[in-house]
Design a binder for these strands. Sequence first.
DNA 1: CAAATTTGACCCCT
DNA 2: AGGGGTCAAATTTG
Length: 310
Amino acid sequence: MAALCSYRNKLIQELLQGQKFANQLQLLLHDEHKPFQQHGLVSSHQQELAVKILRSFTESLSVISSGNTSELVVSDDRDYHQLQLLPPTNSSNGSPCTDDRRLEDSGESKKRPACSNKDRRGCYKRKKNLDTWRMVSSTVEDAHAWRKYGQKEILNAKHPRSYYRCTHKYDQGCRATKQVQRMEDNPEMFEITYIGNHTCKDLFTAPKIITDSDHPWGTTVSHIVRSLSSYTPTKIKQECKEETTQSDDISENLSSLDSVVWDDLVPFESSDPAAAAVSTVYSCNKMPSNSFDIDLDREFHFDESEFLLN
DNA sequence: CAAATTTGACCCCT
DNA sequence: AGGGGTCAAATTTG
């Protein structure tokens, strides 16, 4: 088990390193005074490639670290700068009007009363039993499409809390939500709470993963991504079964590669060391105490075409 | 009961 | 027209 754990840690280390380098590359390409510019303008294609590489590492880290969030050991330490799982709470099912809500308001539904029989506002089931985790980021953006559905002043908080749901809540039944709150002590940063994993197919709205033929680096990047792809939550669950606790509707959440995706944790404008630190802390803390059977050279359960679809 | 979360209706922008 | 933000109200939660 210890060896397996070190495999995972090594992999994460490499991905973090790659993420860091990709970010540096992007900053270089962004900087007009850097030598890259001497040979002429940096093409948008090059910029795009840098972004893709960065995103690939970020996504990869996301996949390996979040796919198993249901399995993580809950930590009582509520340090806001570290990612953690929130303790699972009761799962009281039974709200009669939870999932099949009205279609997205548009056109006709606007003029009509919400429901012929009754206003169903607030008729919902809270999702604290779902995977919940926090992170700190300099941006609220990530690779998923979100729609803001509410904002509220929170007691004893300087900044309001914003509530987001997945854009595909109604067309695909994706139940992922997130809450965003600007940090008091560091208003440049946002504390983001993700609730529930995405079940929608919008996972990689990012351009397709760089393929071997696209770029010389593609070999490395796609290899890593493909390797990671065998880490479906299902497999992770299987491997860690004996020493982990079960979420109530875990099976519901175990869609393949169904994981939170966060975007660039390091800000583009500045090389904020705090943000970089956050990135590291986040990834490390998100790692479970369990170890996984990582074999980089075989067993690609994942159909790569899924990566290339979106 | 106060605070937090979500809905539904409305508004704005593209 | 359609998508996304706003906000008061409804409802849940502790």
